[in-house]
Structure formats: C-alpha cells, structure tokens
C-alpha cells in the first residue's frame, strides 16, 4: 500500500473514531445534525421571504437563485465536512496538543483535516442538495448528459475551491493563532455571497471574488453558463470551464502555505 493510500485510510480511521465518539451522545448528534440542516435552511427561508415580496432579485428568478444557493451550499458543505475543522489548528497550537500530530507516522494535514470530524455537517450538505435538486428541476435549462456532468463537476470543483480556502485559513493560523475568524469571512462569507446572483453586487466586489479570491469559479461563472446568461464582467466564454484548473491552482498554493506554516511552527514552536 502506498503512502498516499495509507494517508487516506488514516483519514478514514480518524474520522470514524470521531464519529463513534459523537455517537456517545446520540441525542446531541441528532439535534446538532438537524440544527446544521436548519441553520443552513434559514438562509434559504430568508431568500424565500424575499421572494414573497418580489419576482426577481438582480434579474434572477427564484429557481435560478435556488440553483446558485444549492451549488454553493453543497460545495461548501462538502469542504466543511472534509476539512472544516482544520481551523482548530490555532487552538491546538495554543494548548500544546498540536505536537501530538507531529510524532505520528501520518501526514499532519490528514490528522488536522480529520480532527473532530463532524458528521453532523451532512445536515448542511443535505439541505444544499435538496435546494439544488429543486432548482435544477425548476430552472429553464435543457438537462443534456453533458450539462448534468458539467453541474456535477461544478459542485466538486466548488468543494475543492472552498477546501483550498479552508486550508489557507488554517495555514494562516500558524502566524496568527487567534485569527480563525478571518478565514470565516472567506468561507462562510463567501458561501453567503455566492448564494446571490453576481448582478446584485458592485462590480469591484465581483472582480475581487473573481480575480483575488476566485470564489466566482465555485458557481457564479459555471452557473451563468448553464443558465445562458452573460456575466457582469463580460469574461470570455471559456472562463466558465476554468473551475477545475483554478481549484487545482488554489489547492497548490494553499498546500504551499500550509507547508510554510508547519515549517514556521517547527522553527518557532508557536
């Protein structure tokens, strides 16, 4: 078995340990999973409330907004489930328990990603997927096999982009252990941003979300292509297909940041 296989297996094992730990408090697990579903659902309820007063937001109908909402929430939920607790790394460094990760024969990143693996987060994924399914059924798109594949790739790519942001946020904590909230503004804040059509926002904000922190590739650009709409920045058509490349690039950069973070920790011990 290769090292990579070992690392993945170790991830599964650690996650399974956390799941079993959670099951020691079964009622709490059920409540928090439902709560996770509901917190996420409330965002959509707010959108429904908005649409009880209007027919279109920024020129987008409710099913179209549901498509945006569903893709970003599902992607975000996946990344949050698989990597969301990486932002505990700052706390681990502060209370000294981070050292344990460094003396085990499993990559630190795997251990950090699986740390306190929270199965309850499937609540958010489930909610996002439900809204996505509803949106897919109701939008005015002819769902050819190619388009379906495109949508699946979009959700996976989105998860990878969010994962890269989570990882960068975790790496940042090696230098500023208290700053986990900064990462939140890009992850949670980004997820909220992407729930709404880009036409709602100021051009500078959309530009920032395209070129600086390229969250636009999570769902905006690909969804606009699916819906056959122009994007407000008038990017060339192939931009909608750049998601996977952008995701890989971001993951690479975050990986470098993470390595630099570990290196810094190992030379400063803090």
């Amino acid at each position: 078995m290769g090292e990579r296989g070992h690392a993945l297996r170790a991830y599964g094992l650690i996650a399974a340990m956390w799941i079993r730990s959670t099951m020691a408090y079964r009622l709490s697990f059920v409540l928090t999973a439902l709560g996770n579903f509901a917190v996420s659902a409330l965002d959509f309820v707010a959108i429904l409330l908005m649409f009880s007063h209007i027919d279109a937001l920024g020129g987008f109908t409710l099913p179209e907004v549901a498509l945006l909402y569903g893709t970003t929430c599902t992607s975000f939920g996946l990344a949050d489930l698989l990597l969301g607790n990486a932002d505990r790394v700052g706390r681990r460094v502060r209370d000294g328990t981070f050292d344990q990760f460094l003396v085990r024969p499993v990559p630190v990143l795997v251990q950090v990603a699986a740390d306190r693996f929270a199965l309850r987060r499937i609540g958010r994924i489930g909610q996002g997927a439900l809204v996505l399914a509803w949106g897919v059924a109701r939008v005015d798109v002819e769902w050819t096999p190619g388009r379906v594949l495109f949508a699946v790739v979009m959700v996976v790519t989105g998860a990878a982009i969010f994962a890269a942001v989570f990882l960068a946020g975790a790496a940042f904590q090696f230098w500023a252990a208290d700053a986990s909230e900064v990462a939140n503004s890009f992850t949670f804040g980004g997820c909220t941003l992407l729930q709404y059509p880009p036409t709602v926002f100021a051009k500078e904000l959309v530009r920032g979300a395209t070129f600086v922190v390229p969250l636009a590739f999570v769902n905006w650009l690909p969804a606009l292509w699916l819906l056959g709409r122009d994007d407000p920045l008038h990017l060339p058509g192939w931009a909608a297909f750049c998601g996977p490349a952008v995701a890989l690039l971001l993951l690479g950069l975050s990986g470098l940041a993470w390595r630099a973070g570990i290196r810094s920790y190992r030379s400063t011990g803090s």
Binding site: I14, M17, R20, S21, A24, Y25, Q100, R104, V106
Partner: peptide, 30 residues
C-alpha cells in the same frame, strides 16, 4: 515516528469518549 514512542504526561492521546481498546486499534492501523 515509527521508531519512537512519546508520552506527554499531562496530555492524553487516548480518545476521551471511546473504550481504551478503540484507541489501541487506531494506533495499530496508524
């Protein structure tokens, strides 16, 4: 890491909510 063992006295590496046996099972696989 495979050739050394470390015990940090005040910080347990065992899994708080699980039976002792489960922690050992994880060590075995890791």
């Amino acid at each position: 890491a495979r050739r050394i063992g470390v015990v940090f006295g005040q910080r347990t590496t065992l899994w708080w909510d699980l039976p002792l046996r489960d922690s050992y099972g994880l060590v075995r696989r890791m």
